[in-house]
């Protein structure tokens, strides 16, 4: 678009935009700090601790106390918090008490899997959601719109485990097309990886496409009633040109924000899908950490999810700022 060629003209605007982005970034860091305090407090409220969990119910109190001391669990809470926070800042979130290896390593084993699943799901669901949302907005109140409306409502309402189970029944048991377990083998080719991830991606997409499509439809419809849209039509522009050249640049802010919210679900919210397809992702790691009272691991997982969420929201804000000439150009 020719409009972008003029971005250099508004250097004052660019400075404003940069300042806004930095401000959002700062707010994100403050949020991370608050979340870390909450995560730490809540996880220490959980009954039992790793020492008790490791040694089992029959352990003598002396043995438990000794292990606590070894883990540093007998130190006062503020001291543990500060030490943990310092470690986080230095990139060392501590040692997993159960796996007896650095948390960073445990997470490093799982995070790529989660990112792959989330990335593939986003790659499928974002274009699909845009297509469905824009199409139903352009044909507002038509049969197509009503049909898509019912379909997306049903998708939002269907529980994931049902979608996943039905998918397994259909594609693995009956058609024997896809594996029912999503194992990513090291060194597997792209084709094999995609095949084994097809069903988890499909299941997760069902949930997020529906949310994003509905928000997209609402954002586009809100713009379609504006006078500038009527003006574009009266200039003889076709419906596709009206939507893509005129409506979308104004609707992109709300759309990307809705998408960031939906996509943030793909890391932490993938627990059901990870469990059903036996997929080694971060969400199931975190659930295991809760079960085994492995606090350092649990806390680190929570911080990863929070960080991912804040990054997505920040990205959405940046897109919205860049799309708005009132901020970009000052």
């Amino acid at each position: 678009m020719a409009g972008t060629a003029d971005m250099a003209a508004g250097t004052g605007g660019a400075a404003t935009a940069l300042r806004l982005v930095l401000k959002r970034l700062g707010a994100g860091l403050v949020t991370m700090l608050l979340v870390s305090a909450v995560v730490f407090t809540v996880s220490s409220l959980l009954p039992g601790d790793a020492a008790q969990e490791t040694l089992g119910q029959s352990a003598t109190p002396e043995a438990v106390a000794a292990l606590r001391q070894q883990y540093g669990l007998d130190r006062p809470a503020p001291e543990r918090y500060l030490r943990w926070l310092g470690g986080l800042a230095a990139g060392d979130p501590g040692r997993s008490l159960v796996a007896n290896m650095p948390v960073a390593e445990v997470i490093a084993g799982r995070l790529p899997n989660s990112l792959l699943l989330a990335g593939l799901t986003a790659a499928v669901s974002v274009p699909l959601a845009l297509l469905v949302g824009i199409l139903s907005a352009m044909r507002q109140d038509s049969r197509l719109d009503r049909g898509l409306n019912i379909a997306t409502l049903a998708m939002v309402a269907l529980p994931e485990f049902l979608v996943a189970t039905l998918a397994v029944l259909a594609f693995s048991v009956e058609l024997r097309l896809l594996p029912s377990i999503a194992m990513v083998k090291a060194g597997a080719g792209w084709g094999e990886t995609l095949r084994s991830l097809a069903m988890p991606v499909m299941t997760l997409s069902v949930v997020v496409v529906a949310q994003m499509a509905r928000m997209t439809r609402a954002a586009v419809i809100a713009q379609l009633g504006q006078p500038y849209v009527e003006m574009a039509r009266l200039k003889g522009l076709g419906p596709a040109r009206v939507v893509f050249a005129h409506v979308l640049p104004n609707a992109v802010g709300p759309i990307v924000n809705a998408m960031a919210l939906s996509l943030s679900y793909l890391l932490g919210g993938a627990i059901i899908v990870e469990t059903i397809f036996n997929y080694p992702g971060l969400a199931s790691l975190m659930v295991n950490a809760v079960a085994s009272r492995d606090m350092p691991l649990l806390q680190a997982c929570a911080m990863v999810f929070c960080g991912a969420y804040l990054l997505l929201v920040l990205a959405a804000d940046v897109v919205a700022i860049l799309a708005n000439p009132r901020i970009r150009q000052g």
Binding site: M1, A2, G3, D6, Q226, P227, Y228, E230, M231, A232, A245, H246, P249, N250, A323, N324, P325, R326
Partner: peptide
């Protein structure tokens, strides 16, 4: 003010 698209340069 309402009939021009706020997101696009005038010349476009």
């Amino acid at each position: 003010a309402a009939a021009f698209n706020p997101s696009r340069a005038i010349m476009d």
